[in-house]
């Protein structure tokens, strides 16, 4: 199908984009990569009267790794982030998760920030970015504000952004030393959204004991499911098979996955238990390997 008619705006600056959103509010949508929005517009599930294209805003495609962390601009492509050497070295979880997103031609256009704003609880990037403790920088008519991802996802397809705000960038803090991570998922076919997915980040102390852990599951709840509480049972000891399996069981019990054509809720809980165990063990192994 073809999109319904809309007015196209290609602002050259953030202020101009924010003013357009302030003026058109609910009747406007923001276009970054368009790999989720445009299909919805073709199917006329989305029928914005105004489309605000961020792709002509200079500098929004920035990808900057520094001592404090990583900054990913709103139009930085998934492919660009995935193939960046600094990302591979310091935020490998992100590169690993992006590699599972759709296919090369989609990742050439699709953006990391756009995927977060799309807030699909089954998608890779919301869970991975939450496990990396990201923060969204949003711009509105009144200026900028920071929204930690822990407060960002409010429901399927819903975020803390108001309709007159746009997400400018994702910031990820620098991970502590002796940190390892893993993204694991089960999908029916490569490139599909996962039946279930797990992001694990484990930091070890100098003696190899778990000092810090972050665990987030995709397609386990209406939002990326933060399982830090269950994972913190691992603190203070080496991460072993038994401990990781216990966290997996606790996560499976806490999760509220959907029943759909890709898998039943029962199957998803089983898959989550296995993926959590494997992801924690792999993250801990990687944390040890790079100390």
């Amino acid at each position: 199908m073809k999109s319904a008619a809309f007015a196209y705006h290609a602002p050259a600056a953030v202020g101009e984009a924010a003013a357009l959103l302030a003026a058109h509010g609910e009747r406007a949508r923001v276009l970054a990569g368009g790999q989720s929005l445009v299909p919805l517009m073709h199917r006329r599930i989305e029928r914005p009267e105004h489309l605000v294209d961020l792709n002509r805003v200079a500098g929004l495609d920035r990808l900057e790794a520094g001592p404090e962390g990583l900054r990913i601009g709103a139009t930085a492509r998934q492919r660009q982030v995935e193939s960046d050497p600094a990302v591979a070295a310091r935020w490998p979880l992100l590169a690993e998760a992006i590699a599972e997103v759709a296919h090369p031609a989609i990742r050439n256009r699709g953006t990391v920030v756009g995927s977060l704003c799309n807030a699909d609880p089954s998608a890779e990037l919301p869970s991975a970015a939450l496990a990396l403790e990201g923060t969204i920088v949003a711009a509105g008519a009144d200026g900028e504000r920071e929204i930690p991802l822990a407060d960002f996802f409010t429901g399927p397809g819903e975020t803390a952004l108001s309709r007159s705000e746009l997400a400018l960038e994702l910031r990820l803090p620098a991970p502590p030393p002796r940190t390892g991570s893993a993204w694991l998922e089960l999908a029916r076919r490569g490139g599909d959204l996962p039946v279930a997915g797990v992001a694990a980040v484990v930091s070890l102390d100098a003696d190899g004991r778990c000092e810090r852990v972050r665990l987030v599951c995709a397609n386990a709840a209406p939002v990326p499911l933060d399982c830090r509480f269950q994972a913190e049972a691992l603190l203070g000891a080496a991460v072993d098979e038994e401990g990781a399996a216990a966290v997996g069981a606790a996560v499976a019990a806490a999760a509220g996955p959907v029943d759909d054509y890709q898998g039943s809720a029962v199957e998803r809980r089983r898959v989550l238990a296995v993926l959590v165990r494997r992801a924690l063990l792999l993250a801990a192994e990687r944390a040890g390997g790079r100390s």
């Binding site: 199908m1 073809k2 999109s3 196209y8 290609a10 276009l31 368009g34 790999q35 445009v38 299909p39 073709h42 199917r43 489309l51 294209d53 792709n55 492509r77 492919r79 296919h103 090369p104 031609a105 989609i106 050439n108 256009r109």
Partner: peptide
Amino acid sequence: CEDGFCGACTVHLDGASARSCLLYAVQ
């Protein structure tokens, strides 16, 4: 498919492969 799934419409935009059904010509 005109929906981004099938890949038949793949072209290169500024040297990178892209779905031409998921791009508006103005872009």
